[in-house]
């Protein structure tokens, strides 16, 4: 019965589980992307070769389409849920105070930290993927000198600062989001959930520190000008 299927798929529970699954998969992307980025520290050639290996593989289009679907799914569903939640209380309270035992700064700012991350993502793609195109030759193969694009961009302290601000926003988003995803998927266990909540914060810190370290590194190797 199709009406039953649409009702289940469109239910509040499946919608938040869709947020959870897309969110967790995007966390996987964050880790892989960060690992690749660390090649910047290893050497310019290694970084360029890595980027070349990714972009010259025809499967990149499949991967990019999948990634785009994850982002669009997560963002689209977030917009839908936020609008629905807004409608569920048409008249706001004159006074509303958190108990201090439930919501956190991170949990109550999810739409905002998500939005900052989205703005960052667009700017990030413009600056790097569609940014200045330089060419270089590594081991006789001509390829894009993405290393130069990145390092040049981070010569500006303002760019470094914006990058770090965006990463902190993302980290705040993750500190609630990762744990929350497990809860939405039905995983809440007295023995593991407290650890999971800690791990969620630890993961957020790891992402913020990991990603922020690279622009700082790029800025410093250029003598800070």
């Amino acid at each position: 019965m199709s009406s039953r299927l649409t009702r289940i798929v469109g239910s509040s529970i499946v919608k938040k589980q869709a947020m959870a699954i897309t969110g967790l998969l995007l966390c996987g992307f964050l880790v892989t992307h960060l690992a690749g980025n660390f090649l910047i520290i290893y050497s310019a050639d290694a970084f360029n070769q890595y980027a070349y290996a990714l972009t010259s593989n025809p499967l990149i289009y499949v991967a990019e389409a999948g990634l785009a679907a994850l982002f669009l799914g997560h963002i689209g569903m977030a917009i839908k849920l936020t609008l629905e939640n807004h409608k569920a209380r048409p008249q706001k309270y004159y006074m509303k105070k958190p108990t201090g035992r439930g919501s956190t700064f991170a949990s109550s700012t999810m739409p905002y930290t998500g939005m900052i991350t989205l703005i960052f993502l667009v700017i990030h793609l413009i600056n790097f993927k569609f940014g200045p195109l330089y060419m270089t030759t590594v081991d006789g193969v001509e390829m894009r000198d993405l290393y130069r694009t990145v390092v040049e961009y981070f010569a500006s302290p303002l760019n470094v600062l914006w990058y770090i601000i965006a990463m902190v926003a993302l980290g705040i988003h993750l500190s609630h989001g990762v744990w929350s995803a497990f809860q939405s998927l039905g995983f809440n266990h007295p023995s593991y959930t407290p650890t999971l909540r800690m791990a969620s914060k630890a993961f957020a810190v790891l992402i913020v520190v990991g990603y922020s370290s690279l622009p700082i590194y790029c800025y410093l190797i250029q003598g800070g000008h």
């Binding site: 509040s12 209380r89 439930g102 949990s107």
Partner: peptide, 22 residues
Amino acid sequence: MVAKMDELGFGNCTNEAECEAS
């Protein structure tokens, strides 16, 4: 029960636990 809850126009959970605290 969830179908009825959704139909009645309640919002979606964002796991903030203000409900538990209150």
